[in-house]
Simulated assay, not measured.
Amino acid sequence: MRAVTRVLTAVLATSAAASFATSATPAPGWRIDRVVVVMRHGIRPPTKAEPLPAGLAPAPWPAWDVGWGELSHHGEQAVTMLGAFDRATYAGVLGSGCPAIRAVADTDQRTVRTAEVYVAALLPGCTTSVDHEAAGQRDPRFSPFDGTSPLTNAETAAAANAALPQGGASRLDRDLADDWAAIDHILDCHASPCIAAKPTVVSANGGRVKLGGALATGGSFSETLALEYADGQPLAQVGWGRATRDTITHLLELHSREFALTARPPAIARAGSSALLGEVANALSAPDAPPFSLFVGHDTNLALIGGALGLHWKAPQFAPDDPPPGGALIFERWTDGSGRYRLAVRFRSQSLDEMRGLTPLSPAAVQTLRFAGCADTAGCDAAGLRSALQPGGPPLAK
């Protein structure tokens, strides 16, 4: 508890964050009156004891201080810094006291606990409940393909294959030969290749893209290395002492490439983000919505929204379009007080070193994303806001 308090005090002592909300202001006289944060959970261990296929790990994996897939204690402190940072940024929206906000999370421990820790730092001394379905129950806002999908397997596979380079999966594997070699070095594979010997395979099942082979293994492994590093584990244990931070940043391209096939193709992205984007649209446009809303889900949710809205980001020390632990898409509604609105979209994330060292976020933590949906000279009314977040397909739920 004292460690979390020290982190919170350190962040609140910095005033730089307060300037970020005023960057890219639509025009003089406009102000933010609504904020919606769609955030990935914080740092966690792998979701299972053996993150790689049997026989690939050259030695036992590092130990973690929580169960598989749960928010780590170090991750709690990193999330605390994010909540304090966002409080400083959006102090004008939150006001004083204990404002009514809405906080929603998926059912996993890591998402619920991330929301709880974030809200405690966002509104210190206040009591705010986090809404979520019962543990083990599917929430279609965060798990859109666990059950039914509006896409057939053929449509899903076609969308994913269209995102491959000319020459298909075999060309992709050839393009990534240096990455496979880097992973083989970390895995201490010398006699024969470990990763490149397993060609990437793209298929579909239940409306969800299924990856097999090198990219599936490499993408998962690159994130495991990043999580070990971000959690502050000794460097001698990160990748068994054979993975530097620069190597991890480079290999995270594989994690981003996974999303380019499984979540960002437009048809898949629209189908997978519709329910959550409907919530975002309502939070921005409904007359009775609170001034601040939070949705905590997974990296896939950010990738789906990014693909649906054509958003691209580059978090410090991560690959382009990779959603880091605690990373967030932030939707700001700006008003001039006359019923006109505009929408600004930003991406906020710690760097790998900021996560590892629990150091204050730098100005590079916030990026204004290119999104023209509701930023024209005339502004948008509430219906325009909803339309801006409707990337084709059927209308968003009212």
Rank of each mutant, 00 (worst) to 15 (best):
E279F: 06
P290M: 08
A286H: 14
G272L: 01
L227P: 14
R264A: 01
P62W: 03
F85Y: 14
A375Y: 04
S362Q: 15
S285M: 01
T359Y: 00
R2D: 14
L225Y: 03
A17K: 10
R102V: 05
P62A: 03
G218C: 12
G357K: 08
G69K: 03
L294H: 07
A103C: 11
L71G: 04
R257D: 09
A169L: 14
A230E: 15
A135V: 14
R342L: 03
A78Y: 10
W334Y: 02
I268D: 02
D131Y: 06
L176E: 15
V209I: 13
V366G: 03
L227H: 12
G219C: 07
Y229G: 00
D146R: 11
V130W: 10
T368N: 15
A27S: 15
A365Q: 03
A154L: 04
A344D: 03
A157K: 14
R138Y: 03
P165A: 06
Q317A: 01
R270T: 11
D131H: 11
E253L: 11
A105N: 09
R141I: 00
G67L: 00
A383M: 07
P391H: 03
A275F: 00
P46Y: 07
E70S: 07
V37S: 07
D108C: 05
R102H: 13
D86P: 01
V280Q: 11
Y229M: 05
T128E: 04
G75M: 07
R346Q: 11
S192L: 09
G75S: 08
A157W: 00
T300M: 09
L211W: 06
P28E: 14
W240D: 13
W334D: 00
L396A: 02
V345W: 00
G29M: 06
E133M: 08
P199M: 15
T47N: 05
A21C: 13
V66E: 11
L227A: 12
A182C: 07
I32C: 00
G326F: 02
C380F: 00
S387A: 14
R40W: 01
I183V: 09
G297Q: 09
A204V: 04
A289I: 10
P45Y: 05
V36P: 03
V130G: 09
A236L: 09
Q317M: 01
W334P: 00
M355T: 00
L329T: 01
D299K: 10
V104S: 12
